[in-house]
Design a protein around this nucleic acid. Sequence first.
DNA 1: TTGAAAGCGCTAACAA
DNA 2: TTGTTAGCGCTTTCAA
Lengths: 320, 320
Amino acid sequence: MTNIFDVAEAAGVSKSTVSRVFSGKGYVSDTSRQKILQAADDLGYVPSILARQLRQQSTKTIGFIAKTYYPAVGDLMNYVTHMLDKKGYKINIYFTKTKEDELEILNAFKYHTLDGLFFADNRNNWHTIKKFSEYGPISTWRRINSRYVYSSYVDHYPLYCKILKYVTDTYGDVSVGHILNDQLKNNTKARLRALNEFKAGWEKIDSWKVFYPEQTNAGRDAAQKYMKLSKKPQVIVVYSDYVASEFISYLRENNYKVPEDIKVFGFDNSDFGRFNELSTIDTFLSLQVRNSINKILSELEQTEFHEYKIVPKIIIRNTC
Amino acid sequence: MTNIFDVAEAAGVSKSTVSRVFSGKGYVSDTSRQKILQAADDLGYVPSILARQLRQQSTKTIGFIAKTYYPAVGDLMNYVTHMLDKKGYKINIYFTKTKEDELEILNAFKYHTLDGLFFADNRNNWHTIKKFSEYGPISTWRRINSRYVYSSYVDHYPLYCKILKYVTDTYGDVSVGHILNDQLKNNTKARLRALNEFKAGWEKIDSWKVFYPEQTNAGRDAAQKYMKLSKKPQVIVVYSDYVASEFISYLRENNYKVPEDIKVFGFDNSDFGRFNELSTIDTFLSLQVRNSINKILSELEQTEFHEYKIVPKIIIRNTC
DNA sequence: TTGAAAGCGCTAACAA
DNA sequence: TTGTTAGCGCTTTCAA
């Protein structure tokens, strides 16, 4: 493996000069530069990123942390990767099975193996995580309020109000069921808050509730539970288009008609929503990611941070 | 940042002994070990992965290379990440915009910044890529035959034959259209080969063909083209469930009925297929990935390689 | 504009 | 069982 010293020798200069050429820092005369470039080319020299990283204590890599995969995570990865790519950063992906897994990553962070962290999902509580923010920027799309961890969340409270209002405006005093995410998540809490407020004048709005911390198979399970219900709500509001799609798919297999027999409202406006004519809310995931990543990069590169304002949009299609 | 030397000093031993404890290699007396562990704990010591990597010329990281994101790529990432995770490896994700992007990664590979490479997609031709296999194992799910790059492909030829046979057995002498992937890809060539063979006794089988190197918006575009056709094929075979779903979705928006007016056959049995009742073929993507990654790991760790045999399955649902 | 030298934190061959 | 020592390949003062 040809290294910086070989090139220096071949070009008849010192290591430092070669380093200056390849790192683009410091002055190098044109003659030296030519000789060095020529020698490097002859020898097939490529700088060792590892050595550079060790020296600079930075890897130009952001850690992407999730608990498990589901399509929205894929979308997140996609957006994050593309944004980082533009700025010359790479992404390292981690799926954590336990709190300890996550702590291990956090420790690597301490040792500059990762320059920044994006949490698609977290296992340790934010209180634990934010302690690590002294080692570098951390952000998430999850909803938290912290000086140490940036969050590009959208507030589900007004959105859920909007959905419920739409339902009553359109269908009157129907009974409504809810397929929700993890009860402990702030977004779920915000939804529950909206729900409780509407409940005053409209009892049947809270006819059925199920919670799923993970999206995989949630739609199927919810459909099975729904079908066993003696009093079936006429409208179901779901926390993600993916889950809603699976829910509908199982229902249709069992000869339920959507939207005739049951109306379904989704959330997030993913491809699953688009392809299944789902009424949903577009939360502009790509903008959320953009904010999160820009925040990380602005801290890393000491540049100014511009936050995009996100205005979620209700999208009415056929299922509700 | 506390390093190995600080711990050595605090424990009253040498660096090497500390190294032996944390790398788990070599003998260390119980008394030393206790002292070292204690000191490390007191100082909050965590070994620097970067330094270890530089020293060992290995990063325990596999590069995942794709051109662009679409849901199947997300599934691949998911499978790859989980498999690597189990073996203590990480994944670095790259989306290449140009051949040069890809070459840059290949060069990093040369410098042991990546231990192995998985190509979800490639920009340079395989001839160029395989030259880099001397620096470490490379594999892909794309179809190629090479001693240097492992490929876990499934052969599309018999599968396409199976689909076409199913169509004729079920619907007789109908006219068939085809939405295909990149013409240059071996899988597409295999499909075309099957198509040509069937053509002999069944002219209308090749009534319409469109090619899309990328999946994004392919379904929509194909639907628009289809609707402009004066003679519309009654059956359309599509190269991925995702594209098929988008295709169907646009058609339905324009009041076509599937399967009444037009029948659609998908490919790959993804969630999109499941949720849209698509007839499709399950190619067991997770097994393809398992083979690819196992191959890489077996070379890295010098262990035996067991190849899973993949037997794709035709799945008949409602769209065809 | 360039070179010498120190060092990022760790591992491994060798000697004791 | 442990310590000494020589790097892995690069960057970055400091001095010339």
